[in-house]
């Protein structure tokens, strides 16, 4: 079996938002929609303060609450674990967005442009299908599939790896198959301390956050 997961190494992340911008551009998301983003959090009180950058987005949960609530079956889950949205089925009720504890889902009701008018680059990629429906990170499934079709290895070859991971200048983001013990993500999880966000909600999230080397 294959089970894709992402790793965000919080020790390395610098909050540069390169992944945010790369995702926005590669996926042509409209202004304000950030399938991938990095949060900037402060912990503690002066002078004992820390600041942490947390990449986040759809966690492609094992038990996706978004999929459970979706009244249309637009939200689905592939055999490899990627949670999908069928834009043709979705009615844009936003229920999934409320079921998601990760604030990972977006909906826009009109086609929007960065400058108000469509740039050539935006005009070339207007996708009416994504208006009025839920959208979110796809783990770049199209890219992944195209890469796999040419024999590339997700998480190893850029052609089969999500653009946020490819773009990460700090080397904080990793991707791969958890069911492959030799994949980069499996090796990293085996050798480092990690946590997952909101595990207690029973979602089974698939973004793992590294915070220390293994003990």
């Amino acid at each position: 079996m294959t089970r894709y997961a992402m790793i965000a190494d919080l020790r390395r992340c610098v909050g540069c938002q390169t992944c945010t911008a790369a995702c926005k551009e590669a996926n042509a998301t409209p202004p304000g929609v950030q399938w991938r983003r990095v949060l900037d959090i402060e912990v503690g009180e002066y002078p004992a303060v820390r600041r942490v950058f947390i990449p986040t987005g759809c966690q492609h949960c094992d038990q996706p609450p978004c999929m459970e609530v979706c009244p249309t079956r637009a939200t689905g889950k592939r055999a490899d674990g990627i949670v999908t949205i069928d834009y043709e089925l979705c009615i844009g009720c936003s229920y999934c967005a409320l079921a998601c504890p990760y604030d990972a889902r977006f909906k826009v009701d009109t086609v929007e442009f960065a400058y108000g008018v469509a740039l050539d680059s935006e005009q070339a990629r207007i996708d009416e299908k994504r208006v009025g429906v839920a959208t979110k990170c796809t783990f770049c499934a199209d890219r992944l599939d195209a890469g796999l079709a040419t024999g590339k290895v997700p998480g190893v070859d850029p052609e089969a790896t999500p653009v946020c991971v490819n773009s990460c200048i700090a080397g904080a983001l990793h991707f791969g198959d958890l069911d492959d013990p030799e994949s980069p993500v499996s090796l990293l999880l085996a050798s480092n301390e990690w946590f997952r966000m909101h595990e207690e909600l029973g979602t089974g999230p698939n973004i793992y956050y590294l915070w220390d080397k293994g003990r």
Binding site: M67, E68, V69, C70, P71, T72, R73, A74, L89, C90, I91, G92, C93, S94, Y95, K107, D109, V131, G132, V133
Partner: peptide
């Protein structure tokens, strides 16, 4: 409120788990 009102009937497609 829904984004695609003309597809509203799709709401009936997920009786197995969706309370909606």
């Amino acid at each position: 409120e829904i984004g695609r009102p003309w597809r509203a009937l799709n709401v009936f497609l997920h009786l197995r788990t969706s309370w909606m």
